[in-house]
Design a binder for these strands. Structure first.
Lengths: 112, 112
DNA sequence: TAAATATATGAACAAGTATTCAAATGAAGG
DNA sequence: CCTTCATTTGAATACTTGTTCATATATTTA
């Protein structure tokens, strides 16, 4: 697969210090969730307030169905939680970590 | 596209407070870059040391070509920088922000 | 119970993307 | 200059994923 190792000592040392593929895969998975416009919009809207599906659709200019699909993904990733009140399902962010991640990403973008 | 607004006052207020689509798009774009196993591996390896393409390929168990393609994406996103020394091109992380983003993502995963 | 409404779900389609393979640069050494 | 080697590049392919549309589920109300 590869050819030669340029700096074998260094490369071997770094390779030994690498985190497990599983952990790095999971880290990538979390970022992947944040890496979609619709989901980022949902996250930011939920940062402002608990909201139901149709209001999120209105706020993000998406269809109810698209929002529902994305909320499912966000919920599976444990980034949002929901509570049901009659017909209406209210979604909110799971914890402060989500906000923190969003803010660091935002800072990074705004500093470019 | 949508049907009804459940809580019109709240939804309208949130909609007015939303960040611009452009900004939210850019934020999503940054996260998207982090949202790939190969790129996350590269980022973590470069967090440990400046490295050249073939060593990165060795460390991440990928082909030179695949790594080169991903480094191009990382460079365009201004997440890594490079310096050439003869035939060899050394890559390193652009700034502390990249490390910070990675670490918050890692923390999030490890706390689940 | 029937109609209306909020949300969820599944299949299908379109668009985006990571990898591979082959070939092309570009630099060093003989 | 010719060869070797590190990296880059482009095209092709295979895979993933977000949206839409139609339909289903669940809850309220007439």
């Amino acid at each position: 697969m590869n050819k030669e190792i340029i700096n074998e000592k260094l490369a071997t040392r770094v390779k030994n210090k690498m985190l497990s593929d599983d952990l790095l895969f999971d880290v990538a998975e979390v970022f992947k969730i944040f890496g979609d416009s619709t989901r980022i919009k949902i996250i930011y809207a939920l940062k402002l307030s608990e909201l139901c599906v149709s209001d999120l659709a209105f706020i993000t200019n998406s269809s109810d169905s698209a929002i529902s699909h994305q909320l499912r993904i966000l919920k599976q990733a444990k980034l949002v939680k929901s509570r049901k009140e009659g017909k209406i399902v209210y979604y909110s962010l799971k914890d402060e970590h989500v906000i923190k991640l969003f803010e660091i990403g935002r800072e990074h973008v705004e500093e470019l």
